[in-house]
Amino acid sequence: MLTDTKIAAIKPPEKGQQEHPDHKVTGLRLRVGAGGAKTWTLRRRVREKVLNRKLGTYPAMKLAAARIAAEKLIEALERDGSGAGIDRTFRAAAEAWIEAKKRPDGIRRQLEMHVLPEWGERKLGDIKRAEVRELIQGLEGEVLPNRVLATIKTIFGYAISQDWLEASPADRIEPPNKEKARDRVLAMGEVARVWNAATLLGYPVGPWVQMLILTAQRRSEVAGMRWVDLDLDAATWTITASDTKAKRAHLVPLSPTAVEIIKAMPVVGDYVFSTTARGPIRGFAKSKRLLDQWLESKGSGLTEPWRFHDLRRSAATHMVRLGIPELVVSRVLNHRVQGVTGQVYALHSYAPEKRHALDAWAAEVDQAVNGVRGGNVVSIGRK
């Protein structure tokens, strides 16, 4: 009978491979090659076929772990005849659920933004309850964590209905308590500290944070900024209706500072801020942790907790303080426009006023960062 001691003592054959069966789990074998590699496999007859499946390598997978993996695969083989469910990734399960249930594009975007970067290639059975809780706790906002948790639970439930999974790691995880409406506004000194810490992060997270500050747009909208939507000669950024929370196209005038930052970006794909050249920047919670670490390392951490969305609220609050009418600030933020005329012509209406507001805000950031008034260009590299 195999033991870890006996396995460690097995010498490789001079040529070819040798198999050492486990007498506790029928079909589990340790395959030892001439080069010394030791591989766990399961050989099992399923209906009319004999399947051979690799489970892992020794010593990374010890005997006890190999037996557990073999028993799980045997159960899967008995359920569906192929064991495909045991290897199915969260991404594959999510795609199958979206297709089967005809879920809207918004659900797909929610998963792509908040879940798939963490779990996309993870096997369904490998995701633990603690990881579900950690992911949900890392999301910001009053509604988003609850919605993402509901989506995750539904996907795991669908996987169970298809015999890809026995139990859901999201079961009995309660939705986060509804938070009180946030009113956190960063003082200009705090804005400057966040700006300087972002400079230290480098591309793409650092410039992305600085654009959050300067444009006052939502984090997902800035993350999804595409080169095709920019007109740097006219200093404008058009967010298409499909990319805004409000489902309305939105024209964002760009201050000279914002244009300077964008022109300094490498072009690595369709998106201005990207780590893969295939999609926009992801993992906001991780980016926030990195930013806070830089703030702490420089001894300039913020005394009160803050979130990325607070940058948007702070920009709006300070624009009002600078004398910008609330109606104009509302247009900058792309809040709901009342009336048919306002909705139809919302894209270009108030464009000069919005430009003035964002230019004034950039000048205020300039003064906070560099301590000089009189321009609206912030030196990107200065701290």
Score class of each variant (00 low, 15 high):
residue 10 I to H: 00
residue 11 K to Q: 10
residue 17 Q to M: 11
residue 18 Q to S: 03
residue 19 E to V: 00
residue 21 P to E: 01
residue 22 D to R: 02
residue 23 H to I: 02
residue 25 V to S: 02
residue 26 T to W: 03
residue 29 R to K: 14
residue 33 G to V: 00
residue 46 V to A: 04
residue 47 R to A: 15
residue 48 E to W: 05
residue 49 K to Y: 03
residue 51 L to Y: 10
residue 55 L to N: 09
residue 55 L to W: 05
residue 64 A to P: 00
residue 67 R to A: 03
residue 68 I to L: 12
residue 73 L to G: 07
residue 78 E to L: 10
residue 83 G to A: 02
residue 85 G to S: 12
residue 95 E to W: 01
residue 98 I to M: 14
residue 103 R to F: 01
residue 114 H to W: 12
residue 114 H to I: 06
residue 117 P to C: 05
residue 119 W to N: 04
residue 121 E to L: 07
residue 123 K to S: 03
residue 130 A to V: 15
residue 138 G to C: 09
residue 146 N to A: 15
residue 150 A to C: 06
residue 154 T to S: 14
residue 159 A to I: 07
residue 162 Q to I: 00
residue 162 Q to A: 03
residue 167 A to P: 00
residue 178 K to V: 14
residue 180 K to D: 12
residue 183 D to M: 13
residue 197 A to K: 04
residue 198 A to Q: 02
residue 200 L to H: 07
residue 206 G to V: 12
residue 208 W to V: 04
residue 210 Q to V: 12
residue 211 M to V: 12
residue 212 L to W: 07
residue 216 A to Q: 11
residue 216 A to G: 13
residue 231 D to F: 05
residue 232 L to Y: 12
residue 235 A to N: 07
residue 235 A to I: 08
residue 239 I to F: 03
residue 245 K to T: 03
residue 247 K to S: 13
residue 256 P to F: 09
residue 258 A to T: 09
residue 271 Y to K: 08
residue 278 R to Y: 07
residue 279 G to L: 01
residue 280 P to T: 10
residue 287 S to F: 01
residue 294 W to Y: 13
residue 300 S to H: 11
residue 304 E to L: 09
residue 307 R to A: 13
residue 310 D to S: 04
residue 316 A to H: 03
residue 334 N to S: 10
residue 343 Q to H: 06
residue 343 Q to N: 06
residue 355 R to E: 02
residue 357 A to N: 01
residue 359 D to V: 12
residue 362 A to Q: 08
residue 367 Q to H: 12
residue 367 Q to T: 12
residue 376 N to V: 08
residue 380 I to W: 08
residue 381 G to V: 11
residue 381 G to Q: 11
